[in-house]
Design a protein around this nucleic acid. Sequence first.
DNA 1: TTGTTAGTTGACTGGTTGGATAAGTTGATT
DNA 2: AATCAACTTATCCAACCAGTCAACTAACAA
Lengths: 201, 201
Amino acid sequence: MGRTSDAKDKLLQVAFDLIWDNSYGAVSIDQICQKADVNKGSFYHFFRTKADLAIAAYEVHWRQKQPEMDRIFSPQVPPLERLSRWCDYIYQTQKVKAEKYGHICGCPYASVGVELATQDEKVRRKTEELIERNSKYVESAIAEAKREELVCVTDPRTAAQQVYSYALGLLLQAKIRNDLKMLRNLAPTIMKMLGAKEVVA
Amino acid sequence: MGRTSDAKDKLLQVAFDLIWDNSYGAVSIDQICQKADVNKGSFYHFFRTKADLAIAAYEVHWRQKQPEMDRIFSPQVPPLERLSRWCDYIYQTQKVKAEKYGHICGCPYASVGVELATQDEKVRRKTEELIERNSKYVESAIAEAKREELVCVTDPRTAAQQVYSYALGLLLQAKIRNDLKMLRNLAPTIMKMLGAKEVVA
DNA sequence: TTGTTAGTTGACTGGTTGGATAAGTTGATT
DNA sequence: AATCAACTTATCCAACCAGTCAACTAACAA
């Protein structure tokens, strides 16, 4: 083996952060390299294009985040509580980001997805996949809640689709209005959408 | 007064279309000028920056669209039917766009809003304003439905917020998944969210 | 110690960007 | 027909962009 380095990891991390805070189009390869303290040549040693880097960065971010999602949606936890924990997690994530960057950053996958959906098929598919992975958690929680008759829905898949759309739409508006407070409605509204028997703490 | 021209209008129209079909960042001033068949100098005669053009273009688009919205939400029409008409309108608009451009284009305001919210305060405020104008229609329809006891909501403003968030989230996902079919769920889900007594045609 | 592999460097290319302007043309008003 | 604001044209530029490359260096294995 030859020498090793953390340049690739730094590029992935910096790219994800910069794109989340700004947008895909507003961030240049030079900028990413500069902030990651990596030379342009090294960038092209590891990645073919900016889109390749972005796709890899989003995959890495998902893998880093997955254990947290597994914890939140643990089968140990009652299904409706999983959902309200998930809402808390979203709120907290956005709050931390907002304090650090001075504005609501929204859902990183959805932002890039919307920006590039009509322009880059690979990126579109990747964001589609990531959103699907996320909403699977929601779906399984709703399915279990239905089995336990905690919830009044016909098809868990459809219900998850509705809940997840609402969450994405709320995040989108929170970003555009730059208003964290909006996200406090997430949990109660979701419970109401599901016809939950009782509000969970 | 000096001479007149339609260069400004052409720029506004072309800018809106190009940005909707692609994204703000992916469209250059040169590109807009070329497609509008207008020279760069003329562009700078009418607008100071690309962001100024975009803001003006979105305002013009809204004004063109407003009569249609007034028609859809006419007080002549029963309030719940207004909402289902609105859903049809969204579906039709997206369908036409998709057939023309080969992909779902989503909500033009939300797309640009999400892309530039953290980068350009003026654009952020403009998209916020446009989204507010749109959701006002929804709110008034829900308020009237409540007065007529067609609907089971406590606060019309909150309910409108929920309905509108869901619609935006669904449009967002339809764009990312490039799937028009998703939008067919819009009307029935909204009626269910509002606890409507009966499904309206 | 020497060969091989993996990673690094930074200057370079050639095209595009937003932004600017000077000089010219047009046409409604007087 | 004279006036002058409104508009057009062609061109410019510095900054920035993605992408290339050949020379270089560090780590490991034999």
